[in-house]
Simulated scan of single mutants.
Amino acid sequence: MEQLSRAMQLHHLLLTSRQPPSRDYLLERLECSVSTFKRLLQTLREQHQIPIIFDRALGGYRYETEPDSLTLPSAFFTESELFALLMAEQLLDQAQPGLLGTSIARLRTQTRELLGRDRSGRSLLRLHLVARQSVKTEIFDTVLNALLCANRLQFGYRRVEGSSAENSHRAVSPQTLLWYRDNWYLIAFCHAREALRIFALSRMDRPQLLTELAVVCDEAEVAALLGSGYGIFPGSTPLRAEVLFDPSAAPWVEPVQWHPEQQMERLADGRIYLAIPFNDLRELTRDLLRFAAEMEVISPPELRQAVVAAMTAGLERHGT
């Protein structure tokens, strides 16, 4: 991978330098010896037909043909690395259709050809995203543009709390995009609340890019927003959930990392004890209800009550 890294850096230097860079300049930027540089040039020229020449009149290296017709040698990648590229491309394309467009169409085609997909006709990779909330392309593009330009953003927002919803107008400073559980979220500094907040892109309406520069928050603040508790909902003081699962739930409970700080133990009677920190009842309650007939919440009381209330409401709805 070191050779690939130098090849990519050399490619960037040749494309971006106003004048063909000299050998001494390239050696300094690539942080390599003369012999290593010569081997790199030989590999690029002979094995991958990359036409790099030394222009004596200009005293530096350049491409002999137009840069737009060149691609970096894909042979530098192992098959597992090419497969990882294909997986990342397909994940992004399914996560947000139209995001990649034609910008990496050549890379996508080359990767699939090198992996033999066109010859074999088989697909070695399938991604099936479940419960993905739809985000309009124009909304995603506007949010992404605000992030890249470091400008403020305003939009209408529909906040859902239980069975009720609240519509509001927000002006924010975008900090980062978050892909969580097959859905897109924007972490941003809300100027109305004067604090960091998390916004689901699927609940945004008519976002507009503003001319004011965004407020940039410290990375530690952004990381702290998600807190140390379970799920995406923020909170300052996590509570501790303790849950017992029946042995029948083991295949779906034991292999899962519920939280980096979880405590999990298989008891003598075959049940599974799980303890995790959490900040908000909503997400954890919904996840535990998947095991409604196979688990019992031991503590805290408010989590136990929330699960029991949801079960009771479900029984009442199906009572007839």
Results as ranks from 00 to 15, higher is better:
Q3T: 14
R6M: 13
H11T: 09
H12W: 12
L15S: 15
S17A: 15
R18D: 13
R18L: 11
S22Q: 13
R23V: 04
D24V: 10
L26G: 03
S35A: 12
T36C: 05
L41V: 02
R45L: 00
R45D: 01
P51E: 08
G59Y: 02
Y61F: 13
Y63T: 02
E66A: 08
L70D: 08
T71I: 08
F76W: 07
T78G: 13
L82N: 01
L82A: 00
L86R: 14
E89T: 12
L91W: 11
Q94G: 12
G98D: 03
S103F: 06
R108H: 15
T109E: 06
Q110G: 13
R112T: 08
E113H: 14
L114N: 10
L115D: 10
G116F: 14
R119M: 05
R122A: 09
R126A: 09
R132F: 07
V135W: 07
I139R: 09
L147K: 08
L147N: 06
R152I: 07
Q154C: 10
Q154N: 08
R159I: 08
G162T: 03
A171E: 11
P174S: 06
W179P: 11
Y180K: 13
Y180V: 10
R181M: 15
Y185C: 08
R197Q: 12
R197W: 08
I198L: 11
I198Y: 01
F199V: 11
S202L: 02
D205P: 06
Q208E: 13
V216W: 02
E219M: 05
V222D: 00
A223M: 10
A224Q: 08
G231D: 04
F233H: 12
S236A: 14
L239Q: 15
R240C: 12
D246F: 01
S248E: 10
S248H: 02
P251T: 07
W252A: 14
E254G: 01
E254S: 09
P255S: 05
W258M: 05
M264V: 02
E265W: 01
E265S: 08
E265Q: 12
R266E: 01
I272R: 01
A275E: 11
I276N: 03
F278T: 05
F278L: 11
N279T: 11
R286Q: 12
D287V: 04
L288Q: 06
E294P: 02
I298C: 05
S299T: 14
E302H: 11
E302R: 13
E316P: 00
E316I: 02
E316G: 02
G319K: 09
